[in-house]
Design a binder for these strands. Structure first.
Lengths: 200, 200
DNA sequence: AAAGTTATAGGACAATTGTCCCAGAAATGT
DNA sequence: ACATTTCTGGGACAATTGTCCTATAACTTT
């Protein structure tokens, strides 16, 4: 059972192709070609395309968890950790400009397809959401931590979408600066905002 | 040449299906079935799928223009007009929850497919962008009108994506309230803020 | 070296894809 | 009533889709 090598390579390539081309638009032939194996061999490792999709989502979940844990360790304080999140937009700028956000675009595509894995894909958002929430709690914003976390998710998703639409590198830069400024204001502000953004 | 009837019905159905299923995931058979014509007949009206896509985009552009002109007429003042924009999220809440934003999701899909019509699709964003910019200019925010317009586009795109991911009706409501509150702040603020976008 | 397990390539499969062609029907103009 | 244009349905086309099957190659374990 050490097909780990091949199975892993398949998931690797599928992950990349699903991001760059979309799930539906990526065929087994595409993946097989990228991995360098025959199309038939495929079904030894994954008996259906949906199984492969689930493996890809699981892989993204794992990768995301590792990344968040990394930020937790590297970041000196919560505000700096949150900035790590904001700056994915810069780090992955080129790819986002070409293909949008991997989490958002997959989630939206699966929603359209009425695919059962849609909820699974949305859990990657939740990983970020919970992590961000905890950072805001540590900043003394326990009462509206979730709203603040969602605000950042909303803005990064919007930036990703519009970045892919306009392909304007300067735009992402400006938005990141603006988000960091917002963060500084919020942190400085201290008390919870009266504004309605205050769920659970 | 009064195939206008059929051709229009085709574009109508294609528009709807491209939104609900995605461009790539929608086949001619799907559209033909929805319209109630034969698959073969199709090529009399549109000689290729890409032609149909362009017609759909043109239709969306036209519809958007009409809508914006309508808001221009109906809205008493710029702030109220901008609120009309924000509240599309409420008006189309159910559809957005199921399929995301039609503009954003199409643009992202076409970006992934490296489709030539991607730029065309992005022009729908520009329609909103220019319109919003003009409203902010009328509010005396000429210096950062574009940044404010983009801020609203970013947030509504993000809300649409996360709404489709979580399918939480209350979330959209909260975000709309928050965006309106931001607008009131900006309007009340008067002078241009140092950091272009400063929600809160 | 033999036996057994695991992995791979290649091809077959029905179904569906976008595209094209053509015989007529329907409408239009004379 | 006739001729011409405009439209439509049905089917054929090659290519591609996801899926499945089988013979064999590549390993392990004896």
């Amino acid at each position: 059972m050490q097909d780990g090598k091949t199975a892993e390579r398949i998931v690797d390539c599928a992950d990349d192709l699903f991001y760059r081309q979309g799930f539906e638009a990526t065929s087994f032939a595409d993946i097989a070609g990228a991995v360098g194996i025959s199309r038939g061999n495929f079904y030894y490792h994954f008996k259906a395309k949906d199984d492969l999709l689930e493996a890809v989502i699981a892989r993204r979940m794992a990768n995301t968890s590792v990344m968040l844990r990394d930020w937790e360790i590297t970041g000196e304080d919560p505000a700096e950790r949150i900035r790590s999140f904001i700056q994915i937009l810069i780090r992955n700028r080129d790819k986002i400009e070409q293909y949008g956000c991997p989490v958002g675009s997959l989630s939206t595509e699966l929603a359209k397809l009425n695919h059962t894995a849609q909820e699974e894909a949305a859990r990657i958002f939740t990983l970020f959401r919970v992590w961000l929430r905890r950072q805001f709690e540590k900043l003394g914003r326990a009462s509206d931590a979730d709203a603040l976390a969602m605000h950042l998710l909303v803005r990064s998703q919007g930036v990703a979408t519009l970045s892919a639409a306009y392909r304007d590198p300067a735009f992402v830069e400006r938005e990141v600066v603006s988000m960091c400024a917002w963060l500084a204001d919020e942190v400085a502000g201290g008390a919870a905002v009266p504004s309605p953004t205050k769920p659970h």
